[in-house]
């Protein structure tokens, strides 16, 4: 059974890019438009991994990560955030919130796959 990865991003093109890349590598992809949407959707099934943007309307990525890590079922699930900044503060905050790793935008498809392989095996 293929693993499911959730992509959380308010940018439809970014979600699509993530979806195309990961689906091409054999993963199931679930999309969410922002943090709250993601929280609503993980109620149904816990994905094997989450790739989330940080800056999003309604609920941002940091809050999403904190909320997910508070859930027992998300202990150990890799959460990778996408960031356009090379801002160390932001990275630190996301790591402290419980993120597993990050990927800096813009990224190439191979880079996304490399990160997925790194945290998901």
């Amino acid at each position: 059974m293929s693993k499911t990865i959730m992509t959380v991003d308010d940018s439809a093109s970014m979600r699509q890019m993530v979806r195309l890349t990961l689906a091409g590598a054999g993963y199931e992809v679930v999309e969410a438009e922002h943090g709250q949407d993601a929280l609503n959707k993980v109620g149904a099934a816990v994905p094997s991994m989450v790739v989330t943007d940080l800056n999003m309307p309604v609920m941002d990525g940091l809050t999403l990560i904190r909320n997910l890590r508070a859930l027992n079922s998300f202990k150990g699930v890799p959460i990778v955030f996408l960031t356009t900044e090379s801002d160390e503060d932001k990275k630190r905050a996301a790591k402290e919130a419980g993120a597993t790793g990050w990927l800096t935008k813009p990224f190439k498809q191979e880079q996304l796959l490399a990160v997925v392989k790194k945290v998901l095996g």
């Binding site: 090379s86 813009p106 990224f107 880079q111 490399a114 392989k117």
Partner: peptide, 19 residues
């Protein structure tokens, strides 16, 4: 000062990626 966005890449993940 913010660095311009031309250069950024996923840190440490070269074009070849790990491995």
């Amino acid at each position: 000062h913010r660095s311009p966005p031309q250069a950024p890449k996923a840190d440490g993940l070269g074009d070849d990626g790990p491995g």
